[in-house]
Nucleic acid binder design. Structure first.
Lengths: 204, 204
DNA sequence: GGTCGGCGGTGACAAATGTCACCGGTGGGC
DNA sequence: GCCCACCGGTGACATTTGTCACCGCCGACC
């Protein structure tokens, strides 16, 4: 029998992380060698313990799972990464795949599935939750230009145009043009609805 | 030794729920008699299995944890309820306590703590996460009148004033008055920022 | 070379929104 | 009875916003 798969587990919810660790410990060919409760901690633990597979929660303090995955790819190219997430926005999936994540799944999978997917990923395979994949495909690419996305993001929490203009280093008129065009492309009544729609599609 | 505590576990994230069940199974004085992945399912399982303690996730499809707790109180007055949640908005805590929830904790607690709290709740005690409690207290009561809250809620997703007016059965002018007054009370620049602030405080 | 899309900008106009004063009605508390 | 807060409304006004046309400047692509 070969040595067990060395796993790094990162999730800011202690309860979940502990439970997951306990669950994976039941699988004799898997071993959790490190745990972390935040993005930076995950990186530190990875450097120290050099896991073969990193199981990362999407939302974590400090750095989110995708940012950690990107860093890990630079630091430990041999370490396979997978993302586990509660709510799967399509945009996240795309970003994740771009930084080399090999597994992407919602927390609704069963423990047995998780263990299986870890093995798959470990041996070079990939796994993407079918439902999330379908959503991502149907969502398609963002119709927004990079700059439109920037400006829309700055408009996210009800910031008035004048402030957006300052923060983006643009003239107020230009900001309004971008917002108007973005809202038009998204079929939104105004920028606030546009923000909501873009968020729903994972374009923000 | 007395019979083990009969527990109902409700969480829509299969992975978490399973892991939790496995974890609680390690405690010999606790036994998970039922599991559910949605609000309605939780109620059905509760009716069928009559647990002593119901551990409910806050966000679930169908009915959220608090709604389930409220129903349970009617259906099974002897069943103690506790809410476990990822992100603890202060407003939720308040609503939870109002419907008789006896435990309210974030998912950042450890498994040992969870088991301890289940025992506490089972024997008639209460437990509220100190940090969430502090937030709730510092957040205080909503400064908004009921009607202001209604209108603000309708304004939530960028709905134009005209539509809010129709839905609320008010004149557009009145709607603007309410929104303006709400934004003023919250110190917000405009209604969208006001919505965000109210959400953050759990007042929405 | 030409064309086209993105970027940044201006100016002008209409529409939506924010703000204020002020109205009457109702109901609770002192 | 009086006061006060909330409800619902009107009218007027300034400000913010959305929308459109049109400008020049790249840079990529054919």
């Amino acid at each position: 029998m070969t040595a067990p798969v060395r796993i790094l587990l990162a999730d800011d919810e202690h309860l979940i992380r502990g439970a997951l660790a306990a669950l994976l410990a039941l699988e004799e060919d898997l071993t959790v060698v490190a745990q972390a409760a935040s993005g930076p901690e995950a990186l530190a633990m990875a450097k120290a313990h050099r896991p073969e597979v990193a199981v990362l929660d999407l939302q974590m303090p400090g750095l989110d799972g995708i940012e950690v995955a990107a860093e890990l790819r630079r630091l430990l190219p041999d370490c396979r990464t997978m993302i586990v997430t509660g709510h799967g926005r399509p945009g996240y999936l795309k970003r994740a795949l771009e930084v080399g994540v090999r597994g992407f799944l919602p927390k609704t999978v069963s423990a047995a599935d998780l263990a299986g997917i870890i093995r798959t990923v470990r041996s070079g395979g990939r796994y993407v939750d079918p439902e999330l994949a379908a959503e991502a495909i149907s969502a398609g690419d963002s119709p927004l230009t990079p700059r439109e996305t920037d400006v829309l993001e700055l408009a996210a929490d009800g910031t008035p145009v004048a402030e957006i203009a300052v923060r983006a280093g643009l003239s107020p008129g230009t900001v309004r043009n971008y917002l108007s065009s973005a809202a038009g492309k998204l079929g939104a009544e105004n920028r606030h609805a546009a923000v909501r729609l873009a968020r729903e599609h994972g374009w923000l």
